[in-house]
Design a binder for these strands. Structure first.
Length: 1017
RNA sequence: GGGCGAUUAGCUCAGUCGGUUAGAGCGCCGCUCUGAUAAGGCGGAGGCCCCUGGUUCGAGUCCAGGAUCGCCCA
């Protein structure tokens, strides 16, 4: 007996129950034990930033990770299941800063770095707990509690080792250049931080045209255009295109002539003739500008499509400008400090932010008659990825890793990686070809301390490990709870060149160093011994029982067989791992990648808390259920954005209801017959099968084949497609056509249905772990003595390849039934009206399937043969096109008009051309008394002629339907017997008395009433 | 500004090698079946296949130019 199922699943309740079961029965632990000797499947989890609770976005990736780990586990693979948290860097810091109400770096320092670090760590601990709870609720099986935390001393130690190695190879340098700078965060940003979505935003900025009076040509001026007024005080040069023509207006203003095609100029000169002219800078009224000799330089990159054709050059405020300063030996003015405020020597501007300075600068220029025009300009402008502040360009000293020597090895390594979707691999190539040196330093607090100790003697000391730091310390180190600011800053070492005491630079490292080292730090690369709990060091102490494995372990698990993250990670984690791995080992750290696109709301808009369209994960678990969420994620092709929401969820719930109802049907009729399934039936249901049974067995095999193939290609969307189509076949074909057998207690049908349902649950269990597990308990574990306790302990169904011929034969039969239904509908003949004959042409249903066709279409006979009908002949275009060329039109018109001659043997003549059988397509249209339908070369014809017998049978069907509806309304059980009275006017139906009694479970029947009536017997 | 991709029904999307009447799901309307089903089946309304040219017997599909949108890079 099976436990009864409710009418529909309560996903939330069912899932909680399954979670409790898994915990109680330690299912996951047992699975891992079961697979311990199996082949390794190495997955490395990209660390999730621990600054939030689980969001539906994060749940997408976590679902994919879980689906494939579960699939591999079902295939017997031994896996690590290590989850990871990213615990340092701006994400964490800025969030905490906000919560504490701090607004600048100065305020953080006043607050105190040790306390600030403590608050950051608390945030991480809170978030790790939240993310873990959410992930468990989602159904993700990981080795929770053995997570890696990137802020552990062990992880930092590994990065130090990497940086030391890079330094030994001469790849670490201090750069002095113009970089994108966030004035609020007070730090420069790296190229890959700029690549994150949301960085470039539309923005309205001032648009100014300004006069630079020429010294060498009195009364004349250069006119330049800028959108960043604050950079004008840093102007040192003006660039013209040497080959372009410049014109002087009557008032003495010089501009590029091509920019103003409608103007007449008093004088024209090529740009090259303007080069070298001196001019008065826009802010020579301030000391820094006054000290500079401003001149005109030539530059091929001057745009002929924008501005005035003369470009204002401020090497301290722009990357290209900075490069020009090297070529032309221009002075560099750096007008603003770390927080984007003017330095004191900028007089009345001092202390003003770049934004606030704009108005004052415009006013001042106007007063001095230098302003030609002021307006607004809409453009895409980069913003800080974390705090949304518009970025500025600023000269800064940053630490870089040189990439040029690694570029080709990186490309070679990426060529060994199999990317899904493939275009993401090309994106990586693109990036690898174009990326610049890696800016690894950030002027912040809660991050990896860079182990750089420069010495006045010129030597850069790079410390390669915590151990080395302690050994080289100039004083005993007493207080170093974590390798982190502020504690680590106190440790001074001796320069190994001159012996002077040196201290660490203040900068911390780019957060992607933390994540990139993971394939080494968590797997024990070069670790001499296996240290249980060895990962729980520094800030991670007490947070995890993760081990520090030894090098042999690393050899076994590196590289990862598979990693999966969102597309954005190409330039972030996928890149940083690849970079570090190629640097350390020359190899890619992963062999296969599954990437996926972005999540939007169900209408296609970005999800934002402030827009009210953000879906809370807890809400989603409660209202749609984790299985439905997982289905929604898995049904998504990874190369398109996912439109996630409750609307699509309802559609999925409906689909799952079909599966649920199929199981409910099995449970209901199985229980009526006291059916007991045999676990061995999963291997094969044996002989004695009817045609539908044999088909369903093959259909299951096809499902297993298709799903296996889809999992192996990392395409969950194809798993879902295969499963959906299977459930449709199961419910709307097998069960529908076999209902009578179930009423009659046909045990074979029950066994085959059980086999099919259970096999399909096994196949879909990685996607729908809760529903599959719940139904496994009901259908398998409880009734079968020898069954595994969990669907996840049962392994992968081992079945033979499907028999295509058998599947095709049923497909033919179904096509005939579909056409028959179409024909009935066209002729307006209800299914309750039996018909005498169906004639089929163009397909030969297998003999054992003819009965199915007959029952489904309710016809007495199915004949295979010629359909008597009018001919419709069409040209077979792919064949005739190349043969006839321009004559095709004529032939086609003749055929369409019916102007053709039948030559026998399927040949025709039209418009003077003889057409062979394969050059035409022949279809048929209806005659009187017949209903015809045809498609794909199959034609069916229904004889719609009725006689008394057929009409009487129709009335019997009608009566049976009516009585059974009454039974239902009267609340009778499926097995209750009745005494049935039918109207006297229907006395002629008593001819079919036994049939009526059998169909309505009537023990007596008489025709004496006015209307049908029944009574429980 | 450069690169990549897209544009097909109200919405989300398929559309194979160029081929006959351009499809699916959802939504809408009508009909229908039902002894598991809240399901299923049948039909209908709804299309400038972004535009303009070209190649071809034939273009949603291939080519060129343009428009719009998205992504990536600057």
């Amino acid at each position: 007996m099976f436990a009864r199922l409710p009418d529909k699943p309560d996903h939330d309740a069912l899932e909680r129950e399954v979670l409790e079961r898994w915990e109680r029965e330690e299912t996951f632990r047992r699975l891992r034990e079961q697979n311990a000797g199996g082949p390794r499947f190495s997955f490395v989890d990209g660390p999730v930033t621990a600054n939030k609770s689980l969001a539906v976005h994060t749940a997408w990736g976590r679902t994919l990770k879980d689906v494939f780990q579960r699939y591999k586990a079902l295939r017997g693979h031994h896996q690590r299941y290590q989850n990871g948290f990213d615990c340092q860097g701006l994400w964490i810091e800025v969030g905490v800063e906000r919560e504490l109400g701090l607004n600048s770096k100065r305020e953080i320092e006043e607050f105190g770095l040790a306390e600030f670090a403590r608050r950051c760590r608390e945030k991480v601990i809170w978030s790790a707990r939240e993310l873990t709870a959410g992930s468990i609720r989602l159904g993700q099986w990981m080795d929770w509690g053995a997570d890696y935390f990137t802020f552990s001393d062990t992880n930092i130690d590994y990065i130090w080792r990497f940086l030391r190695l890079m330094h030994d190879r001469g790849r670490v340098y201090l750069g002095h250049r113009s970089t994108e700078w966030c004035p609020r965060c007070g730090t420069s940003l790296s190229q890959h931080e700029l690549s994150q979505s949301g960085v470039y935003q539309d923005r309205s900025d001032p648009s100014l045209t300004v006069r630079f009076p020429l010294v060498d040509r009195a009364g004349e001026s250069l006119v330049i255009w800028t959108t960043t007024p604050w950079t004008l005080p840093a102007n040192v040069a003006a660039a013209v295109h040497p080959d372009a023509s410049y014109g002087r207006r009557e008032n003495g203003d010089w501009v590029m002539a091509a920019r103003y095609p409608d103007e007449a100029f008093a004088e024209a000169l090529p740009g090259s003739e303007l080069v070298g002219l001196r001019y008065t800078g826009p802010f020579d009224t301030l000391p820094p500008g006054a000290a500079v000799e401003h001149r005109v330089i030539g530059w091929d990159e001057v745009s002929v499509d924008e501005g005035t054709g003369i470009v204002h050059i401020a090497p301290g405020c722009g990357a290209e400008d900075f490069e020009l300063s090297r070529v032309h030996d221009l002075p560099i003015l750096t007008p603003v400090d770390e927080s984007g405020r003017f330095y004191d020597d900028y007089g009345w501007l001092h202390g003003t932010s770049t934004g606030d300075a704009a108005d004052q600068i415009v006013g001042d220029l106007a007063e001095r008659g230098l302003l030609v025009h002021a307006g607004l300009y809409e453009h895409r402008y980069p913003h800080c990825w974390r705090c949304d502040t518009p970025l500025i360009f600023r000269i800064s000293d940053d630490w870089f890793l040189a990439v040029d020597e690694l570029r080709q090895p990186l490309l070679d390594a990426n060529a060994t990686v199999e990317w899904t979707p493939a275009y993401m691999g090309k994106r990586m190539d693109d990036w690898l070809r174009n990326m610049g040196d890696w800016n690894i330093s950030r002027r912040r607090y809660y991050g990896l301390p860079l182990p750089f100790y420069p010495c006045g003697c010129g030597r850069l000391n790079v410390v390669g490990s915590k151990e080395e730091l302690l050994a080289r310390a100039t004083a005993p180190v007493e207080d170093l709870p974590e390798l982190r600011r502020p504690w680590v800053d106190e440790v001074r070492i001796r320069c190994d060149a001159c012996g002077e005491e040196v201290e660490r630079i203040a900068e911390v490292g780019d957060v992607w160093l933390d994540a990139g080292i993971v394939p080494f730090s968590t797997l024990g690369w070069q670790s001499p011994e296996y240290v249980p709990g060895g990962y729980a060091t520094g800030a991670a102490e007490g947070l995890t029982r993760a081990d520090l494995p030894d090098h042999a372990y690393w050899e076994a698990w590196f590289p990862a067989d598979w990693v999966s993250e969102m597309r954005e990670q190409i330039r972030l984690w996928f890149y940083s791992q690849l970079f570090m791995s190629v640097a350390l080992t020359g190899r890619a750290p992963f062999t296969k990648v599954l990437g996926y696109e972005k999540m939007l709301d169900e209408t296609g808009r970005e999800m934002h808390g402030s827009w009210g369209n953000m879906i809370d994960a807890q809400d989603a678990f409660a209202r749609m259920g984790a299985d439905v969420m997982r289905w929604q994620y898995c049904a998504q092709p990874p190369d398109r954005n996912l439109l996630f929401g409750f609307g699509p969820a309802r559609e999925i719930q409906r689909k799952l209801l079909t599966l649920w109802n199929s199981v409910g049907f099995l449970v209901q009729y199985g229980n009526v017959e006291s059916f007991t399934p045999q676990y061995a039936d999963l291997e094969g249901v044996g002989a004695d099968l009817g045609p539908l049974d044999r088909w369903l067995v093959e259909r299951v095999r096809r499902l297993v084949e298709e799903a296996t193939d889809a999992y192996e290609r990392w395409l969950t969307v194809d798993v879902i497609r295969a499963f959906e189509s299977f459930v449709d076949d199961l419910s709307n074909w097998y069960i529908r056509c076999s209902r009578r057998r179930f009423w009659e207690g046909d045990e074979t049908a029950l066994r085959v249905l059980w086999h099919a349902v259970v096999q399909s649950l096994r196949v879909v269990s990685p996607v729908l772990p809760f529903l599959a597990e719940h139904l496994w308990q009901v259908l398998v574990r409880e009734p079968c003595d020898d069954a595994p306790d969990s669907v996840f302990l049962a392994g992968w169904p081992g079945v033979a390849a499907p028999d295509a011929a058998s599947l095709d034969a049923m497909a033919d039969a179904r096509r005939i039934v579909d056409l028959g239904r179409t024909a009935r509908a066209t002729a307006g003949v209800k299914l309750r009206q039996p018909l005498a004959r169906l004639v089929v042409e163009g397909a030969t249903p297998a003999r054992d399937l003819v009965a199915i066709v007959r029952d489904e279409l309710r016809v007495r006979d199915v004949e295979l043969g010629h359909v008597e009908a009018e001919l419709v002949v069409k040209p077979n275009l792919p064949v005739l096109g190349p043969k006839l060329g321009s004559e095709l039109g004529t032939v086609r018109a003749a055929l369409a008009a019916g102007e053709f001659e039948e030559l026998g043997g399927g040949r025709f003549r039209a418009a003077g051309h003889e057409l062979s059988a394969d050059e035409v397509l022949v279809e048929r249209s209806a005659r009187d008394g017949w209903a015809i339908a045809s498609s794909d070369g199959v034609t069916v014809a229904l004889d719609t002629e009725l006689d008394d017998g057929l009409e009487r049978e129709a009335r019997v069907y009608e009566l049976i339907h009516q009585v059974n509806t009454m039974r239902k309304e009267a609340g009778l059980a499926l097995t209750d017997r009745i005494a049935l009275t039918i109207p006297a006017a229907d006395a002629d139906l008593l001819e079919h008395g036994e049939w009526i009694k059998a169909e309505t479970l009537a023990v007596s029947l008489d025709a004496s009433g006015d209307a049908p009536a029944l009574e429980k017997a």
